[in-house]
Design a protein around this nucleic acid. Structure first.
Length: 585
RNA sequence: GGUCCUGUGGUGUAGCGGUUAACAUGCCAGUCUGUCACACUGGAGAUCGCGGGUUCGAUUCCCGUCAGGACCGCCA
């Protein structure tokens, strides 16, 4: 046993006999004097060997990452290290023991001088020894603990729902698991516990939560993993405001306990429509301004052909003002932005700088004085400002300008990771129209409740029907979303009808839910929050792999274990599965 | 499904149509009593991801493939 962790001892412990353990961070052999930095989960303590004896010789032979145990007396250092919490003291060691030797590690176990991520993932257990990963894993634990503490106090019950469950073709691609007992039938891993938590409400539980593992077989990104965790919450006999209020309190509690910061409540809200109008996205980063502005009538009579054509086609001309960034963007930089705009589907990008009191732009010569003045006013252009305009369909303009805002903010460092701009996007539409499939699709999911006053629009004008839906957004991440659910069989049927899901399919896929709804269902609603995304924001990292102990690569591989891997023919036979012969390409 | 970037001693990088493949760090040996990324001296360590092609000659150029990363599509 040990007496202390390696972050604990201070000058007040001088003279104490202690026993420490840990990994050798580093042995510094100065000849007749040897120092060893001993690292454990909590920190580093310096061991000193200065007696002229065998012990010192042995200490000089210690290598990085050996696991040892050492005993001795705490003493004040003659030269202190103010960078270490234990920097005032060292241990005058009189006995130590090597518990385990270590091969030369493939990477430096230190925050700086990092190996590439590929090496770190292959040897994740070594990567996890680094203080940075220690800090992030601790943050994860604290966040989950704060969540459980808070929800338990609020009268919630924690549940577990099945991991082997039924495939639901709507939505993301499922991971499937073959059944041995029922040949050619498959379980699916849950994309979320959505239906189960609703069934718990129907089962008469009023406040559910789960730290729930979810699985989606889709392509990965720097903020997406094939398996990830949601803080999943559902409540009965409440309204939307109750869910929003509870979620804000939960966020406040987590931020307080992990960062020591008080969040201002209530969080700001904007409607889905406002989000798209002002920021060009349904998950705006509101840490910086640069809102999208409609030039309206400014170019109504424009002689500039591009503008004229777009307006004739019922398109729109909108822009953003990158305040005082005219000097920051050279012609070449602007070409880069233009290329990005074109890649996103815009015909081009108009840029203008306000310099020496006048608009400088490649298209300036096509604009009348009236147009220039109008634009200056609309965009609130001042000396040194850079304005970017896109003329196209509303959808394209929003997409392009929304993207350019983010690019510029990143390039120009307009954002701070400390700025927790939690806000709600509310009043989501029930449906969007899928051009490819020629039918309506749920924006949230098919169990979302339509707002009472919009119920008639389900048949008359589905696209105008608003849902009781809400997303929590921070720093441009969709942190989570939720809704009030449908609790009547009849309404659920109406929604399925809009979605063109016929009765046979309804029965096949959701029959159990429809049956359940028919036996008396409390009004209910909830929310699901992406734990990893929250941790990325709190931990100030852009990489989701940093907040997962054993993450997978962009191609879904676990470099540590080698998953996924082939299996024995025998295993396949048992499942009545056959390998498909690889076709030559 | 697509676009782009990367792959060179253990690790991170440099390099170039012909080199003894360079540098840093780590590793090994030695010197050193106040280091803390110790310092100094010396040393070992690389079929340049894999396969094919072009060429008198390929680590270098081309094609394919594999692996990692960023992004688009996708993720109700």
């Amino acid at each position: 046993m040990y007496t202390h962790h390696n972050n604990e001892l201070t000058i007040r412990d001088a003279g104490k006999r202690v026993r420490l353990k840990g990994f050798v961070q580093r042995a510094r052999n100065l000849g007749n004097l040897v120092f060893v930095d001993l690292r454990d989960q909590e920190g580093i303590t310096q061991l000193a060997f200065d007696a002229d004896n065998e012990l010192r010789m042995e200490a000089g032979r210690l290598k990085a990452e050996y696991v040892i145990e050492a005993e001795g007396k705490v003493r004040e250092r003659s030269s202190k290290n103010k960078d270490l919490p234990t920097g005032d003291i060292e241990i005058d060691v009189d006995a130590f023991r090597v518990l385990s030797k270590a091969a030369q590690p493939p990477m430096l176990i230190r925050d700086e001088t990092d190996a590439l991520e590929e090496v770190r993932l292959r040897h994740r257990y070594l990567d996890l020894r680094r203080p940075r990963l220690k800090r992030l894993m601790k943050l994860r634990h604290q966040t989950v603990k704060a969540t459980r503490d808070f929800l338990n106090e609020e009268g919630f019950m924690e549940f577990e729902t099945p991991i082997l469950t039924k495939s639901t073709p709507e939505g993301a691609r499922d991971y499937i698991v073959p059944s041995r007992l029922d040949k050619h039938h498959f379980y699916a891993l849950p994309q979320s516990p959505q239906l189960f938590k609703q069934l718990l409400m129907i089962g008469g539980f009023e406040r559910y939560y789960q730290i729930a593992r979810c699985f989606r077989d889709e392509d990965l990104r720097s903020d997406r993993q094939p398996e990830f965790t949601q803080i999943d919450i559902e409540m009965a006999f409440i309204d939307q405001e109750a869910v929003i209020d509870l979620t804000e309190k939960l966020m406040a509690r987590i931020v307080k306990e992990t960062k020591g910061v008080e969040l201002k409540r209530p969080f700001p809200r904007m409607t889905y429509e406002e989000a798209l109008r002002d920021y060009g996205t349904d998950k705006p980063d509101t840490r910086f301004g640069m809102k999208i502005v409609d030039t309206g009538e400014t170019f109504a009579k424009s002689g500039f052909k591009v503008f004229k054509t777009v307006l004739e086609k019922k398109g729109t001309i909108r822009g953003v003002n990158a305040k005082s960034l005219a000097a920051a963007y050279s012609r070449k930089d602007l070409d880069g932005l233009t290329k990005e705009a074109e890649r996103l589907g815009a015909g081009g990008l108009v840029h203008m700088k306000m310099e020496d009191g006048e608009i400088k732009s490649p298209i300036a010569k096509f604009l009348s004085e009236e147009e220039k003045d109008g634009l200056t006013e609309k965009m609130r252009m001042e000396e040194g400002d850079l304005v970017l305009l896109v003329a196209d369909s509303e959808k394209t303009v929003q997409k392009v300008l929304g993207r350019l805002r983010i690019i510029i903010a990143k390039e120009q460092d307009l954002v701070s990771g400390d700025d927790l701009d939690f806000h709600w996007v509310v009043e989501w539409p029930m449906f969007e129209y899928d051009e490819e499939e020629g039918r309506y699709r749920s924006l949230h999911h098919p169990f979302t409740r339509v707002q009472d006053e919009d119920r008639a629009k389900l048949s008359s004008d589905p696209l105008a029907a608003k849902a009781y839906g809400y997303d929590l957004v921070v720093q441009g991440y969709e942190l989570g979303g939720g809704s009030m659910r449908i609790h009547e069989t009849k309404l659920q049927g109406e929604v399925f009808r809009v979605l063109s899901i016929d009765e046979k399919t309804q029965r096949e896929r959701f029959g159990f839910l429809l049956d359940a709804l028919s036996y008396g269902t409390p009004p209910h609603g909830g929310i699901a929050l992406g734990l990893e995304r929250l941790l990325m924001v709190l931990g100030q990292t852009e990489n989701i792999r940093d907040v997962i102990a054993f993450p997978k690569t962009q191609s879904g591989h676990c470099l540590l274990t080698g998953a996924p891997s082939v299996v024995d023919e025998e295993q396949l036979r048992e499942l009545a599965l056959k390998k498909e012969k690889k076709r030559d390409g």
